[in-house]
Design a protein around this nucleic acid. Structure first.
Length: 926
RNA sequence: GCCCGGAUGGUGGAAUGGUAGACACGAGGGACUUAAAAUCCCUUGACCAUUGCGGUCGUGCGGGUUCGAGUCCCGCUCCGGGCACCA
């Protein structure tokens, strides 16, 4: 029998599917294990070889866990709402649902060919009403909840209303949009509309007038993580800041829990660090500065309370409400001009324009510790959205304040001994304080750390301010002015937003065009009868992309449950994801929102674990490896890479699919484009060698490698092994087809252990000690490697083992069948085939379902003798062989009596002998 | 600017503080073959020596700890990633 991958793979894939061997139940005697991949957005381009990298790794792990006796949940689905399908719809008029259906079908076809062990009976799509009803449901739960800081959890809005009825805002400690202050009788006197507006201040899903990232080109608002450097992540269009009334999620309420619980989960340091940065906890103090000749008090936030004696001016954000309150009449015109100019700048313009700018308000603030007056300025380097939108400026110890002070010629007072502030500020939080003594507080001589603590204590005691923790994490803007997303289940009764609970799932309506209406309303404004049966208008915004992906891992536990997102039983059984594999680009988006969403559901008692993903592995990106041909200028002649420097050439991308091992297929090249039909070549050694470079894998670079092509040519098992062999899972690396032959050769070599032509070589001979040693070395290595996600070295271990068994001419059924079990997670098709055709296991049995992972036996690894290196002064000189249980003395004796020793001992004294049993003997001479 | 990673042959990459370069690609040589493909065998870090033994240097740079450092510590350089007028 020959190794025919096409025949083998399609046959087993079909059989596995018919028998439903990957279907998993919500109850089992076996322990549970949940392995999840980040589900893909089904784009029109289909999968390229980079996409399955993480899926292959998770599949290997799932299969391994199954063989180890776990009940493994390993589902797959589609993140089906997204911009590309909508933009395609705008261009062509094709309903995004059709586009999405076509794309998911194509994805499924591609995924199936690779032989994944997904339980497709649990497949979900975020655009399926039976799925998104639970996205909408969760949104309404958030709408109906507030965050009680006292109990540190979300509570039903009714408990808040009860509090307001009794005490007003008195004694309330809640996550909120802004500080509100009213009494129980005020509450009683409010109209329904006023109450609704007031409650928005506390709801976890709420509407607010906030500064949003508005992308005019996309016609929608974007969340912070959807914007990078002032451009939209999708499409790269400019984004401006705009005040809009929008739906938001109060993610910030959970900032401290999101930060603290990072310590409880097994994620990489880098992604935890990214989340820590994004959450941005900073401990500081809020302080009040009286404004001279006014009752206004400026509240500012600082992390450097110790530098209060160095305050030489104050700065307000242009958008700050203080600006209006403090500006003196004579300065008003100048200030208004500056503020309006700042407002008209986009975020990108503000970022590019790093020039120092600002305007004096005419007012002065009084330093509460010194009583001295300092001028109040307005500048756009202070952000309205962080802290209080006002700062005390300490130019000596803050580089931004320093730049401002130098530009406007304001005084700089150094506060730290030895700090040279003639050229730049001294920002480090270290050193001893100077110039820091006032009538009531003396910080001189203290270390910065102690000075901060002392100042905080002082201002708190004096009632000048309080200790405050600020977070950079913003509430997530939750409305999108787009069509292809989940409708927000809200209707408006006399202008009051009401939950539309009874309508769930609230299905996405049909529209004639996927564009905003003439009056500038979102596309849902075009839907006919987009009202409740009573005629109340429905919300026109849809939910953002992260909505559907925030709780999908819960739905897989119980995907067809019509009563609940997930039943308590199913949730208690599967709990949370044990292993999650996906790209690190979701660090500040999906992975934050999911954790937030899960914590909210945890507060509600819907889920039993406070974190959704116990362990997270970020697979690296697979980059493209582009090939180039070199055209001699103004000719149709192409020169091989090694000779190109002799000519004046232009490098041109050439399709990597007509290049093999960097050698160009000349005929295919001539046929690829009409203009190349008459191309001439200057060859080296009869070949045209292409140049190469690592670039993003994309159509425009002609470097897209399609997994189907690899599967067609080499088979899924080769693709799987090769993707793992490419390098460490978490590292980004270019796809390089050059090495794939080696892995394919390995499979053929493996096959030749079992078959020579049509003859089956497997027999019942007693395995030799060497064969058992090779096998158990492999079991030990692969077991450890899988646990550590070091799959590349596992593949190497297989190659070594097969080479050894092949040299030993091992035909033992015992050894060769165990080898297949170890290989099965990596290359399931060839393992299953040989399991039956060569080992002769019964038809009814499947290696992927019924085999048991072998335990390695240390005894087989023991050597009758062991080799140890003998070194002199640390440099190895010769080897000795000793018994494994040789005593220290025996080893030393053997080492010194070895014939090689004489040369090194000649005329020297032995000072010390270090023996590391089994490894090395170091003889220190001198 | 702050915070995380990383740097090893021609290439991708291996190495619980213990003989650096596993495994694979590529390259060179050979066998088989009319020939090619496929397959198999040998060589392959650099330099020196080569009749044979062998020797010297080598993990981005400079120090240190250690009998012994790719690995640990200190100080740099460069590359990748995250955050960023966040006070």
């Amino acid at each position: 029998m020959e190794y025919k991958h096409k025949d083998i793979e399609s046959r087993w894939q079909q059989k596995w599917q018919e028998e439903g061997i990957y279907r998993v139940d919500n109850s089992s005697d076996r322990p549970k294990y949940y392995v999840l991949d980040m589900f893909p957005y089904p784009s029109g381009a289909g999968l390229h070889v980079g996409h399955p990298l993480g899926y292959i790794a998770s599949d290997i792990y799932s299969r391994y866990k199954r063989l180890r006796g776990f009940n493994v949940l390993h589902p797959m689905g589609y993140d089906a709402y997204g911009l590309p399908a909508e933009q395609y719809a705008i261009r062509t008029g094709q309903h995004p649902e059709i586009t999405t259906r076509e794309n998911t079908a194509r994805y499924r076809e591609q995924l199936d060919k690779i032989g994944f062990s997904f339980d497709w009976s649990r497949e979900i799509k975020t655009c399926d009403p039976e799925f998104y009803r639970w996205t909408q449901w969760a949104f309404l739960r958030m709408f109906g909840s507030w965050y009680n800081r006292r109990t540190a959890k979300a509570e039903p809005i009714e408990t808040l209303i009860a509090h307001l009825e009794k005490h007003g805002t008195e004694g309330l400690d809640a996550a909120q949009t802004r500080e509100l202050d009213f009494s129980a009788s005020d509450w009683a006197a409010m109209s329904d509309k006023e109450r609704s507006d007031a409650l928005m201040n506390w709801r976890l899903a709420f509407q607010a007038n906030t500064m949003v990232n508005w992308c005019p080109k996309l016609g929608t608002v974007l969340a912070n993580d959807e914007v990078s450097e002032g451009l939209s992540v999708r499409g790269g269009y400019p984004v401006e800041q705009k005040m809009m009334y929008q739906w938001c999620l109060r993610v910030s309420a959970y900032a401290d829990r999101l930060l603290k619980d990072l310590e409880t989960i097994d994620w990489s340091d880098s992604i935890k660090e990214t989340q820590r940065n994004w959450i941005g906890r900073s401990e500081g103090a809020e302080m009040r500065f009286k404004v001279a000749d006014s009752d206004v008090e400026l509240e500012i936030f600082t992390t450097r309370a110790d530098t209060i004696f160095g305050v030489t001016f104050m700065v307000l954000a242009p958008e700050s409400a203080y600006v209006d309150m403090v500006t003196t009449p004579d300065r008003r015109a100048a200030v208004e001009e500056y503020v309006s100019a700042a407002k008209h700048k986009t975020e990108r313009e503000r970022m590019i324009d790093k020039k120092v700018s600002g305007v004096f308000t005419g007012a002065y603030a009084i330093n509460p510790l010194t009583g001295k007056q300092v001028p109040i300025w307005v500048s756009d380097y202070v952000l309205a959205g962080y802290g209080t939108g006002a700062i005390m400026a300490v130019p000596a110890h803050d580089s931004r304040d320093y730049a401002f002070a130098r530009h406007f010629d304001l005084p700089v007072i150094p506060l730290i001994e030895g700090a040279d502030v003639s050229e730049s500020s001294f920002d480090a939080k270290e050193g001893r304080m100077i110039n820091s003594a006032g009538p009531e507080l003396d910080l001189n001589g203290l270390e910065v750390k102690d000075a901060i603590a002392k100042t905080k204590e002082f201002i708190a005691a004096k009632g000048i301010g309080k200790v405050k923790v600020n977070f950079r994490l913003r509430d997530a803007i939750f409305s999108r002015q787009r069509y292809w997303g989940e409708p927000i289940p809200i209707y408006y009764k006399d202008g009051i937003p009401m939950p539309y609970e009874e309508a769930l799932p609230l299905a996405l309506p049909e529209v004639d065009k996927y564009l905003p209406t003439e009056t500038g309303e979102p596309p849902l404004g075009r839907a006919k009868n987009w009202t409740t049966p009573d005629g109340y208008p429905l919300e026109l915004n849809t939910m953002p992309g992260f909505a559907g992906s925030s709780a999908y891992y819960l739905r897989y536990m119980d995907p067809r449950n019509p009563e609940a997102l997930v039943s308590p039983e199913a949730n208690k059984y599967w709990r949370n994801v044990d292993l999650y594999i996906g790209g690190s680009e979701h660090a500040t988006g999906h992975l934050i929102y999911s954790r937030f969403w899960n914590k909210f559901l945890y507060d509600l008692g819907v889920v039993c674990e406070p974190e959704p993903f116990k362990k997270l592995i970020n697979q690296g990106m697979i980059q493209g490896r582009s090939n180039f041909v070199y055209r001699i200028k103004d000719t149709n002649t192409f020169v091989s890479h090694g000779l190109k420097d002799k000519y004046d050439t232009t490098p041109i991308h050439v399709d990597v699919n007509i290049v093999s091992n960097d050698i160009l297929d000349l005929d295919a090249f001539r046929k690829s484009q009409p203009e190349y039909a008459t191309a001439e070549f200057i060859l080296e050694d009869g070949k045209y060698i292409c140049g190469w470079a690592v670039e993003k894998m994309s159509k425009s670079m002609f470097n897209v490698v399609n997994p189907d092509d690899i599967v067609e040519r080499y088979g899924a098992d080769t693709l799987r092994l090769y993707e793992m062999f490419l390098g460490p899972l978490e590292q980004s690396k270019p796809w390089d087809t050059n090495g794939i032959d080696g892995v394919n050769r390995f499979i053929k070599k493996l096959w030749s252990l079992y078959f020579k032509g049509d003859t089956c070589l497997v027999d019942d001979s007693e395995p030799t000690p060497e064969a058992l040693k090779s096998l158990h070395k492999l079991i030990k290595k692969v077991t450890a490697d899988i646990e550590n996600f070091s799959f590349n070295t596992s593949v190497a271990a297989f190659m070594i083992c097969v080479n050894e068994l092949s040299t030993q001419k091992c035909h033992s059924r015992e050894v060769l069948s165990t080898l297949l079990i170890v290989l099965a997670p990596f290359a399931p098709h060839v393992a299953e085939e040989l399991w039956h055709s060569a080992i002769g296991r019964p038809e009814s049995e499947s290696i992927v379902r019924d085999a048991e992972w072998p335990e390695f036996n240390e005894d087989y690894l023991k050597e009758s003798t062991i080799t140890m290196a003998v070194s002199f002064n640390g440099k190895a000189r010769y080897n000795i062989t000793v018994a494994p249980d040789a005593s220290r003395e025996e080893i030393e004796k053997t080492a010194l009596e070895h014939e090689g020793a004489a040369k090194w001992l000649e005329g020297k004294t032995v000072r010390k002998i270090i023996v590391v049993p089994g490894k090395i003997v170091n003889i220190v001479v001198g």
